[in-house]
């Protein structure tokens, strides 16, 4: 198994590291548990334009990791850099879609999506144009003037996604963004996300509990383990793009899926898997 390698960048023979995490450690201090090590010895490199999924058991620190990358939580030790600059000094701001949305209840769908643009002082007309495009993109036409509490969970999730994308980020951090969607909407959103990724070349870190989804979308799947949270394995996904839904039925896909599933379950590492793991036909 090759760890921390960028198969995509390697094939393109032009490796540019977008995000570099080195020996990250995060302790939560002063909570119910006196000191709790949420992340330890976590190192990860993500290439520019790479689509990386992060999987792992509940509580292994996926959300914590994303929030640290987004600069929303302090790390206890370790280094994180974006484009070679420590995140404190880097001008690049990753956009994040939270697991629990974090929409502003006092703002309408449109105003929520325009929030980041307003902060950056973008004029009203441009804001309107961008927000309308994004409302259409996540299929919420007609809901611009609604307040979040008037929407379903899945709709709120799509607003959160549109809000992050409206800021046209370099790095997009997604924390289970499709968890509350029905199967059809989820597939549609996955396709939209891939389109968007292709168009903009944004670097994506995608947290999910859905193994199939992770493999289907990603260049690389990262499996984390718990207590303390760290990276257990990094699995390149060599399925040609564009991918359609048939690839899910392929032998290699299913093998990888099983492998990842076993890795995630507690004793996964101890289960021997016949044949070469992580290979796709």
């Amino acid at each position: 198994m090759t760890k921390g390698m960028f198969h995509k960048a390697v094939t393109e023979d032009q490796l540019k590291v977008k995000l570099c995490i080195n020996n990250l450690r995060k302790e939560y201090v002063g909570g119910t548990r006196d000191t709790f090590v949420a992340l330890d010895k976590l190192s990860l490199q993500v290439a520019e334009g790479e689509f990386v999924s992060v999987l792992g058991p509940s509580g292994c620190g996926k959300s914590t990791l994303l929030e640290i990358i987004a600069g929303l939580q302090k790390r206890s030790s370790g280094e994180i850099s974006i484009d070679g600059l420590p995140i404190e000094k880097s001008g690049t701001k990753p956009a994040i879609v939270f697991q629990h949305y974090g929409l502003f209840p006092w703002l309408t769908v449109q105003k929520n999506i325009e929030y980041g643009l307003k902060i950056r002082g973008i004029d009203r007309k441009t804001r309107n144009k961008i927000s309308h495009a994004h409302i259409e993109m996540v299929n919420l036409g007609g809901f611009a003037k609604f307040y979040p509490h008037e929407l379903s969970g899945g709709m709120q999730q799509r607003v959160a996604l549109a809000r992050a994308l409206a800021n046209n980020p370099d790095i997009l951090l997604l924390d289970e963004p499709f968890a509350a969607l029905d199967a059809q909407t989820r597939e549609m959103c996955q396709r939209e996300l891939l389109n968007l990724w292709k168009q903009t070349g944004v670097t994506i870190i995608f947290v999910t509990h859905d193994v199939g989804e992770a493999i289907f979308l990603s260049d690389r799947v990262i499996v984390m383990s718990k207590n303390p949270g760290t990276i257990k394995e990094s699995i390149p996904i060599d399925i040609a793009r564009p991918r359609d839904f048939h690839v899910r039925l392929a032998e290699g896909f299913r093998k990888t899926e099983l492998h990842v599933r076993l890795l995630i379950s507690e004793n996964g590492a101890m289960v021997a898997i016949p044949g070469k793991e992580g290979q796709h036909g």
């Binding site: 929030e67 987004a70 600069g71 929303l72 701001k93 990753p94 956009a95 994040i96 939270f98 629990h100 974090g102 929409l103 502003f104 929030y115 980041g116 902060i119 950056r120 809000r163 800021n167």
Partner: peptide
């Protein structure tokens, strides 16, 4: 989370 949301957008 709301504060984090706002902060993440600058």
């Amino acid at each position: 989370l709301l504060v984090k949301s706002a902060r993440s957008m600058g």
